[in-house]
Simulated assay, not measured.
Amino acid sequence: MTARVHGGADALGPVRWDFSSNANACGPCPMALQAVQRADAAHYPDPDYTRLRRALAAFHAVDPARVLLAASASECIQRLTAWRWRAGDRRFRTPPHAYGDYAHAASAWGLERVDGPGLAQLTWLCDPGSPLGQGEAPDAVRALLDHMPRTVVLDRAYAPLRLKGDSALSPTQLDRVWQLWSPNKALGLTGVRAAYAIAPLGAHADVAELASLAASWHIGAHGEAMLMAWVTPEVQDWVAASRQTLADWAGALRALLNRHGWTCAPSDTAYGCARPPQPVDAAALRARGIKLRDATSFGLPGWWRLSAQRPEALAALDAALCEPTVLAEVDVRKGEDAQRRRGAFES
């Protein structure tokens, strides 16, 4: 079973300066937060979520029958994987460096990881992806869709936070895949759990089957309120305005890391991976109220994922990186091995 490793809060609770989460650091979105706070928690939601599904469908200009609601993106990943396993699929594929829940769900259901566009029956894409914040390559997407696995899921969690570039998939290609949306990241409300997927054209029966696999009332009143707020013009305007702020903060973060000798990988988002000139002591940083995301579980040992944060958080990180106690002890031979691995990644 693959381990689940996440950024954000841990056993010690939330951290003051959290660079480990990709949530929008401009958040929480005031209008969405107000909607959540006003949610009617005294009553069950509509078990069919009729109003919510219609609102999401109108927002994406699709038939409501294409909208699949989920308790969270991670829950949807588990349910989609279980659905494909039940249908007889046994092979899956993910990007080389990707969110660990894709592989965890596959491991839980006994699917085998394979490479190559024509081998997998269930394929995961993420555009832009995590941890690198880069978009899928258009040529690779085209080759994948030419072979067309039974199920392709495009995780669009970070699409609202893209700072440059466009989706690798055309509108026609998007209609051939499942699009998984989890707006709580863009809204800075990751503690509110709710998500949804837009099914491919003609997949109404699949939506109904997947809906039957969900628990009753799988989205609570607060998650429903967040998703209803997500589609409003004022919230969309706030998200759009936040992207410029995030771009400024991301530029400042990269400049700071460069001053400290870190190597920053390219990114189209306000988060990305960087490699320090020598290992850092994560526990020492955590003791100073700072958390980074170790990228080892993404297949990038020696790299860290960091997200753009407010200027006061950046100042705290700058001060911490000047402290020799945050630098870990280095084994020279291990350092040489790591250098060879890094060279292979950078090439």
Rank of each mutant, 00 (worst) to 15 (best):
C126F: 03
W109D: 08
S130R: 15
Q78F: 07
P95A: 14
V114S: 11
D101C: 03
G110Y: 09
C126D: 03
C126V: 02
A103K: 01
Y99V: 07
R91P: 09
V114R: 12
W109A: 10
Q121E: 15
G88R: 06
A105P: 01
H104E: 06
Q121Y: 05
A120Q: 07
P95R: 10
R84Q: 15
I77K: 13
G118I: 00
R90L: 05
D127I: 05
D127H: 06
L122Q: 03
A98I: 04
P95Y: 08
P128F: 14
W124L: 04
W85A: 15
A87L: 08
A98P: 02
T123D: 09
G129K: 02
A106H: 00
D127C: 04
Y102D: 09
G100D: 12
R84W: 07
S107C: 06
S107R: 04
P117A: 10
D115F: 14
A105T: 03
A106C: 12
L111R: 01
A87G: 05
P95W: 08
D89I: 08
L80Y: 08
A108M: 13
A120M: 04
C126G: 06
W109S: 09
C126T: 07
L119C: 12
Y99Q: 01
A106I: 00
P117H: 11
W83Y: 15
A106P: 01
Q78K: 15
L122Y: 04
A120E: 06
R84Y: 03
Y102A: 14
C126E: 08
A105C: 00
R93S: 07
R86K: 10
R84G: 05
A103E: 05
D101V: 07
R90M: 02
L125E: 01
R93Y: 03
I77V: 15
T123S: 12
R93M: 12
A98D: 10
F92P: 03
S130P: 09
A105S: 06
Q121G: 15
D115E: 14
A120C: 06
G116C: 02
L111W: 00
H104S: 01
Q121S: 14
Q121P: 09
W109P: 05
A82K: 09
H97R: 08
D101I: 04
